[in-house]
Simulated assay, not measured.
Amino acid sequence: METLEEAELCFPQINTSCKKQTRPQSESMVMYILMSSISLLTVVLNLLVIISISHFRQLHTPTNLLLLSLAVSDFLVGFLVMPFHILYTEPCWFLGDLVCVLYYVLNIMIVYASLLHMVLISVDRYVAICDPLRYSTKITQRRVKICVLLCWIYCVFLSFLFLCDNLKQPGRYNSCYGQCVINIIGALDLVLCFIIPVSTIVILYLRVFVVAVSQARAMRSHITAVKLQSSVTVTVKKSDLKAARTLGVVVAVFLMCYCPYYCVSIYGSDFISSANLFLVFLVYFNSCLNPLIYAFFYPWFRKSVKLIVTLEILRPQSCDSNMMKETTE
């Protein structure tokens, strides 16, 4: 990578202005095209998920409601967070101190919402696999809606809590005019936004994995208990195991995208600043990957996308279409 060369001031009319840094035009062009393309793809793919689950009544299950809310947060990452991040990579910040703080408020709120939705999905799969007989009574649509609402409220509260000082006096941590710098207690961010939720996700899915493996072995061995069950019960269990596997892939990809940023941040601000652009965008890129995973594992999602693209959802009663015809999901 070429060394950035100093150029004129960001705001020549202001003595305290930051110095503008320039980068090779080819490098900037490639970066902007790549980041803009990923942002647009994230918006389109998650919009398809939102329309699919919202429109087709057969997809209104507790698990899919969690996926719907996760898709909303991923959509907002592509629609709001990524475009602002592209502007943030510019040598100078021209949108003012207040917009800088509000950008970080949106950033923390939306990205942390995605993280908490992963926790809720892990809890959903844990109950479905480890306590299947009481799943329908424990995990209801009403309870899921309440949990999703509380999740978003908590994320809004946490984002304002983290940036309270910055909101009181925007720009107080800038060393020169034209910067966008905020102050967050690193230890608090690491514990609340990474260690606690990620530990919860890993522990729950380890338990799900152990139970799923034991159930799979029991089915293959055709033990007496499995033979006595009805075919419907076995189908439900297979469906739950498949859903757990699919959402396990979602969680695994999520951890691969989030862990590098927080692991590197432990080494200090100097190290993280040098790799900040790539690691932060890797976190955002996870929002683009989730719909691709659905498309690969969920036949109902592929079918719904086909109906959306061909505009068949505009037909009367299209919301009652049978989306499970090709799958037991």
Rank of each mutant, 00 (worst) to 15 (best):
S28P: 01
A218Q: 04
M219P: 00
D97I: 03
N322G: 08
V234C: 14
L292Q: 14
I293G: 00
E312K: 14
R134A: 12
T22D: 05
F162Y: 09
K242Q: 09
V305N: 11
P24L: 14
V30H: 08
C18N: 14
N290Q: 10
V148T: 10
Y135T: 10
L76R: 00
C257Y: 00
V210I: 13
W93I: 05
I121E: 01
I108E: 01
V226P: 02
R302S: 09
T3A: 11
D270Y: 11
I50N: 02
E27D: 13
S28R: 06
A113Y: 03
L48Y: 10
D189E: 14
R23K: 05
K306S: 05
T89K: 03
V43L: 14
E6C: 14
T224D: 12
Y88I: 00
L68V: 09
F160D: 01
D189K: 01
L120F: 02
P197Y: 10
C147H: 04
I201L: 06
Y177N: 07
L311M: 13
L4M: 10
Q25W: 11
M323S: 10
V208C: 07
Y103K: 06
L47W: 09
V148F: 05
P12N: 08
E312G: 08
V99L: 12
L34E: 14
N46T: 04
M219C: 06
Y205I: 04
F162I: 07
S17F: 04
N290H: 05
R207H: 09
C147S: 02
I182T: 13
M324C: 01
S39L: 09
K20A: 13
F79P: 00
N174P: 06
A218W: 07
Q58T: 03
A71N: 10
V77G: 06
Y88R: 09
S214H: 09
V99S: 04
S231T: 09
G248F: 05
V198M: 12
L241G: 06
H117W: 14
L206D: 03
K19W: 15
Q169G: 02
S136A: 12
A218D: 04
C18D: 03
I38A: 15
I223A: 12
D165E: 13
S136D: 15
H60Q: 14
N46L: 07
D320L: 11
S214Q: 15
V234Q: 12
C193S: 09
F11T: 08
A225P: 02
T310P: 03
N174K: 04
Q229G: 11
R207A: 05
L98G: 02
M118Y: 04
V44Q: 07
V234G: 11
